[in-house]
Design a protein around this nucleic acid. Structure first.
Lengths: 161, 161
DNA sequence: TCAAGATATATGCAAACGCATATATCTGAG
DNA sequence: CTCAGATATATGCGTTTGCATATATCTTGA
């Protein structure tokens, strides 16, 4: 297995580039009003959950440090878009859910955004089959074990300049 | 073509999730020293270019506003990792290239990081064929026309609140 | 039952960011 | 040649972020 390593790195670089290009394109769309994409990400994640989420659970989906997310959530609550209630079963934690206003906001922006997304991926000329491949592969990538460093241990072999 | 739109959105969400999961995983690796991932991104991009890059060109690869990138570049130059020279042919612009120290730094971290990347994508159980598919699809996505709003124009069809 | 450590979230503070806009330079129509 | 507008980068300023750490609560083993 020679280029295995190279193959993986090329794929990852392509993914990074695609991500950056598309995020910029979506950010440039005139659909966000006074909601940032990060804020939308939180609203969206909450919208997909039946029961209230903890901050730490949210934090698995949002690319933000815990303190930053904690404060983002406070701001969204102050703006009336989400509700923060303490969990009687674990009084350390905070349960987050969309308010009606938050749900309405998410739905509106979500509709527009979904359209942008569909348009962008179509424009790129991806076939339905490719879209499915992309989803399948990315889902595999997302289901990572979150292994903690010293685990796999066969860190020998290297790759010079 | 019914689920076309849904297909695209599901694929995009999977890509976003994979991106977030992997970025967090890589950020957690103990290989970065006093270089942030964003800084590394700049060093890496510069390392892949024969001739000096402008800030505006760099900015196409780095997910950061122009002023933020401008200042990041100043900081890297102050730290001696990159060189900023003004372009005699266009005195508005700044030409950026790696210093020797910057190149050494990029190579060292790059080697470690490449290993993390390969390990992560392997662990996810992607076959070489899947790695190639992922790269191909993401490259298509990255090659977007950067169309400016009013371009494609068939923005009819709607979908109300 | 209780202290030691784990877990969930919050806070202080300096660094970094985005937005609006300034500055310098280039380009093209007239 | 010149001036209006475009382009490339920088700066002012209020907001947001990350890091380190504090606070509150849970869990567990002796």
């Amino acid at each position: 297995m020679p280029g295995r390593r190279v193959l993986a790195n090329d794929a990852w670089e392509a993914l990074l580039t695609a991500h950056a290009v598309l995020i910029k394109q979506f950010a440039a769309e005139d659909i966000w009003g006074d909601i940032s994409m990060r804020e939308y990400d939180v609203l969206y994640t909450l919208s997909k959950c039946r029961e209230p989420l903890r901050i730490s659970e949210l934090n698995r989906h949002v690319l933000l440090s815990q303190p930053a997310l904690s404060r983002l959530v406070v701001r969204l609550a102050e703006r009336g878009l989400i509700e923060r209630q303490s969990d009687p079963a674990d009084r350390r934690s905070v349960r987050l859910s969309l308010s009606d206003a938050g749900r309405a906001c998410q739905r509106q922006i979500g509709r527009w955004h979904a359209r942008s997304v569909a348009r962008a991926l179509m424009t790129a000329g991806l076939s339905p089959s490719e879209l499915r491949q992309l989803e399948t592969i990315c889902l595999k990538l997302a289901r990572q074990p979150a292994h903690t460093g010293t685990a796999t241990e066969d860190n020998n072999e290297d790759m010079h300049p």
